[in-house]
């Protein structure tokens, strides 16, 4: 089972703040999931390549052509905060 500190570190990496109760719950849930998938380790996969694309496409490319988009206003209307045509974000430091 992951330690409480390890769960907190994961949440940091994933940029999600968790309550104390959530840390405890996800510690238990992750233990159940890791226990569940443990059986995979027994499968012999020597000589097998990892598979992520199943229909055989490789490096699909298209022409790098600029297109005019006329929906800037609509796109930016979804931002919680804008200033002078830019996304507004909090200070980083």
């Amino acid at each position: 089972m992951l330690t409480i500190d390890e769960v907190i570190k994961l949440a940091k990496l994933a940029r999600i703040s968790l309550t104390e109760a959530e840390v405890g719950r996800f510690q238990k849930d992750l233990a159940a999931i890791l226990d569940y998938i443990d059986e995979l380790k027994k499968v012999d996969t020597t000589g097998l390549d990892p598979v992520s694309q199943v229909t055989g496409l490789v490096n699909v490319q298209r022409d790098d052509r600029a297109k005019v988009a006329d929906n800037h206003k609509q796109i930016f209307s979804q931002a919680p905060e804008m200033k002078d045509g830019y996304y507004k974000v909090k200070a980083i430091l």
Binding site: L40, K41, L48, V51, S52
Partner: peptide
């Protein structure tokens, strides 16, 4: 390697 890559290899078996 232990999890993701392993799972992708077993995925190959299933395919």
């Amino acid at each position: 390697d232990e999890y993701y890559k392993k799972a992708q290899r077993v995925r190959g078996l299933i395919v």
